[in-house]
């Protein structure tokens, strides 16, 4: 399926037509002005639609704009031009506080280096996004315990990050990314710091989540990781170079991105 740009005049109509597209990016650009002559176009006009429940791997050489892309998808950064609809909401021009809110409610992050908070226990780390939503942590405690069990750490609730192995830490991070029941989970090289066996376990867990219906977008250099995805988006020089669907019915179908 080719994701061609729609008629610019009918964005709201298109949102209504295809409500399954939880991410719609249109002519997205990110430019860094480093000096008079030195302008870096980290993203040079990207169009992308990601459906609910899909598992997308973003690949590409270093410097091709993957991280920039993921930062914008994660509402950590704002595009220079173009628009970004997340769940039907234009988030490309939101205020800093509103973006924080979106991150806290609709997006789950998994980082390469786990990024747990050192002074908190496993269960407290899982609770962090709920805290920033202003929730009473006592009412959601049981759910957090369930999540810890889901990732296989039901017996490590009061451990500190330093008392856990890398794989265990990444599992905590996965539980944390799920706690706010996000629209999608963004993962930047989630297995990059892990040995192949624990990496495979973590990947298994992520795949499992996707099978449960979670939308997953991950950046990876690893073909074995990408092999689990339904769709592989290859980037080059700030553009989408290849967009490959690997689902049963479209496996192997190459789809040039630019019309």
């Amino acid at each position: 399926m080719v994701e061609a740009p729609r008629n610019p005049g009918s964005t709201s109509a298109s949102a209504a037509v295809d409500s399954r597209g939880i991410i719609r990016i249109e002519r997205l650009e990110k430019t860094y002005v480093l000096g008079e002559e030195n302008i870096v176009r980290a993203l040079a006009g990207v169009d992308l639609r990601i459906e609910q429940g899909s598992f997308v791997a973003i690949m590409g050489p270093s410097g091709s704009g993957k991280s920039t892309m993921l930062n914008i998808l994660g509402c950590l950064d704002r595009p220079t031009a173009g628009s970004y609809f997340l769940g039907g909401e234009d988030v490309s021009r939101m205020s800093d506080d509103a973006l924080s809110e979106v991150r806290g409610r609709r997006i789950g992050f998994i980082f390469q280096s786990y990024n747990l908070i050192a002074q908190l226990t496993v269960i407290e780390n899982i609770q962090v996004p709920l805290f920033y939503r202003g929730q009473d942590l006592r009412t959601s405690y049981d759910r957090c315990v369930e999540l810890a069990k889901l990732v296989g750490l039901g017996d490590r609730l009061t451990h500190r990050p330093t008392q856990l192995s890398g794989g265990q830490q990444q599992r905590v991070a996965i539980a944390r990314s799920l706690v706010n029941d996000p629209l999608m989970i963004l993962a930047d090289e989630p297995t990059g710091n892990l040995d192949s066996r624990t990496g495979a376990e973590v990947l298994e867990l992520i795949t499992h989540l996707n099978q449960g219906g979670k939308t997953i977008v991950l950046v990876t250099h690893d073909d074995k990781v990408a092999a689990r995805a339904h769709r592989i988006v290859r980037m080059k020089d700030g553009r989408i170079d290849q967009d490959i669907y690997r689902t049963a019915e479209t496996a192997g179908l190459r789809q040039p991105e630019r019309p």
Binding site: L76, S100, G104, P129, Y132
Partner: peptide, 16 residues
């Protein structure tokens, strides 16, 4: 700094 970044990613506002 890293912790601050993580908290911001997890929904913390500047004011938080």
């Amino acid at each position: 700094t890293r912790e601050i970044g993580v908290r911001r990613a997890l929904g913390a506002k500047k004011s938080d």
